[in-house]
């Protein structure tokens, strides 16, 4: 098996992580609508979540629901799941604040387009 095929077949999720980060970054830089920039930030975030959850995965493992007597398994690692649960909630808080600012910007300047906004502010 060639190196590239091997990479594709054993580390496919990491490739998706990289592509999703790229999509999110492109949206944040290039899309002129502020709401779409916020969506781009969320796409970037979910890409990083995929990285963590993939790291926690083990072949043939079950979810980390433990047997009462101990033993059982293998289990996936619970720690990255916890970190991502926290990150999802923090991400929503961040989005809520960003969207509130966007609503305020629209009330003040009457536009959500980045270029128009820049012109209006410079006037």
């Amino acid at each position: 098996m060639s190196a590239v095929t091997d990479l594709l077949l054993t580390r496919y999720n990491y490739l998706a992580v990289v592509v999703l980060s790229g999509i999110g970054m492109y949206m944040m830089i290039e899309n002129h609508n502020l709401v779409k920039k916020v969506i781009g930030m969320n796409v970037f975030q979910t890409g990083i979540f995929l990285f963590f959850i993939t790291m926690a995965y083990v072949d043939g493992a079950g979810p980390a629901i433990l047997e009462s007597g101990g033993g059982g398994g293998p289990y996936v690692s619970p720690l990255p799941h916890v970190l991502i649960l926290t990150a999802i909630v923090v991400g929503v808080s961040l989005t809520a604040v960003a969207l509130a600012l966007i609503v305020r910007i629209y009330a003040e300047y009457g536009t959500l387009d980045e270029e128009v906004l820049r012109e209006v502010i410079h006037e």
């Binding site: 959850i53 926690a56 799941h81």
Partner: peptide, 15 residues
């Protein structure tokens, strides 16, 4: 699919 049901529930509800 990646055996993270807690994250899946949170993502579906919040995301």
């Amino acid at each position: 699919v990646l055996r993270a049901p807690d994250v899946a529930l949170t993502e579906a509800a919040i995301g």
